[in-house]
Simulated assay, not measured.
Amino acid sequence: MSRLLAALSPLILAAGAAQAQTADPHAGHDMSKMAAPSQTDPHAGHDMGAMDMSGAQPDPHAGHDMSAMGPPDVPTSANNPGRPPETPPPAAAFGGPAHAADLVFGAQAMAASRQALVVENGDVRTTAVIIDRAEAGFGDGGDTYLWDAQAWTGGDINRFWWKSEGHGDVDGKLEDAEVQALYSRAITPFWNLQTGVRQDFRPDGPNTTHAVLGVQGLAPYWWEIDAAAFLSTRGDLTAKVEAEYDQRITQRLILQPRFEIAASASDIPELEIGSGLSSIQAGLRLRYEIKKELAPYVGVEWTRALGSTADLIRARDGDPDQVQMVVGLKTWF
């Protein structure tokens, strides 16, 4: 054993010397001033405070004065102060005919074409007949019948207009009727000025002719107004105002309040009309439109004679205050 250890001892000593030679290469060096290994910052030493890191695109107009730039040249009002000025057309532009097509087709041919265009698109002639009330009344004063109709023909501005009203007893004869023939002129988009003549027919009284001056149209809140003054050949001046309004409950069911006021400048005893406000009439009708041109209705109407007119009615033992139930038909074509 001793001989084996003696033989191995030189090998053990050689291995220890080799391990000593592979020790830390930095042993004995001062490493305190050396930084940890890292990537070098490419921006090290640069001032980054003024740089925008948001990623937004730079404004191409930055630093430009935009206050002197006006709006784009687009079609706007000619008197817009912000619109750039436009060069007036040259004088030669007004040297030719009013219609350039006259140079190609001739002035005479184009005049006929323009007239046909006016007739077909701007000067349309139409006609309408409206039976506003064709009704029977039941109540005070017995059973009665009544009609109220009007019609017109013409264009948007000028029209010929006629109107007719009348009433009587169901079991008796006609009491009175009137027919008006009028020239109608549109004075505003919603109002017509009307003038003409009116003829009254009375089986038991005088037949009278009147000059008529009135207005008819659509008042605010969709009230239809028909107002006129009448001057008879006897010198009697009377006036009448009618107003009605359609209140739609459904597309077919319509409630219509209606009012009528009559007045006279003087007493007309033979017609039982006194001076001042002579009568007032108020009605309420509910109609159902089977179709636009055909609508039956039911309603109630109250009539009251006023002032001297009421005195004339009482003098013959009449009642100046009457209420009636009405049934009727409204139609037009």
Rank of each mutant, 00 (worst) to 15 (best):
R3M: 10
R3D: 11
L4F: 15
A7E: 15
L8V: 09
S9L: 12
I12M: 12
L13E: 07
L13A: 15
A14G: 10
A17V: 06
Q19D: 08
A20I: 06
Q21A: 15
H29W: 08
M31Q: 06
K33Y: 06
A35D: 05
P37R: 05
S38H: 13
T40C: 04
D41C: 00
H43M: 11
A44K: 13
H46N: 08
H46S: 07
M48Y: 12
G49F: 10
A50M: 05
G55N: 01
A56Q: 08
Q57H: 12
D59N: 14
A62C: 03
A62K: 07
D65P: 05
P72M: 13
P75K: 03
A78C: 03
P84N: 04
P85V: 09
E86W: 08
P90W: 04
A91W: 05
A92S: 14
A92G: 07
G96S: 03
L103Q: 14
V104Y: 15
A107G: 06
Q108K: 12
A111C: 05
S113N: 07
R114F: 15
Q115G: 06
L117E: 13
V119S: 14
E120N: 14
V124D: 09
D132H: 12
A136I: 09
G142R: 04
W147M: 02
W147I: 01
Q150P: 02
A151D: 04
W152G: 00
G155P: 03
D156W: 11
F160E: 01
W162G: 07
G168K: 00
D169K: 15
L174K: 07
D176Q: 13
E178M: 09
A181K: 02
Y183W: 14
A186G: 08
F190A: 04
Q194H: 01
T195D: 02
V197N: 02
R202A: 15
G205E: 05
G205M: 07
G205T: 03
N207D: 12
G214V: 05
V215S: 00
Q216W: 05
L218Y: 13
A219F: 15
Y221V: 00
W222M: 06
W223A: 01
E224M: 12
R234A: 07
A239C: 03
E244D: 11
Y245A: 04
D246K: 10
R248A: 15
T250K: 06
I254C: 08
F259S: 10
I261N: 06
A262Q: 11
S264P: 02
D267A: 04
E270K: 10
E270D: 15
I273H: 10
G274A: 10
G276L: 09
L277H: 11
Q281H: 09
A282N: 02
L284G: 12
K291A: 13
K291I: 11
P296N: 05
V298P: 00
G299D: 02
G299V: 02
V300P: 01
E301I: 00
T309R: 07
L312Q: 14
L312N: 06
A315K: 07
D317C: 01
G318W: 12
V327W: 00
G328W: 13
L329M: 13
K330I: 00
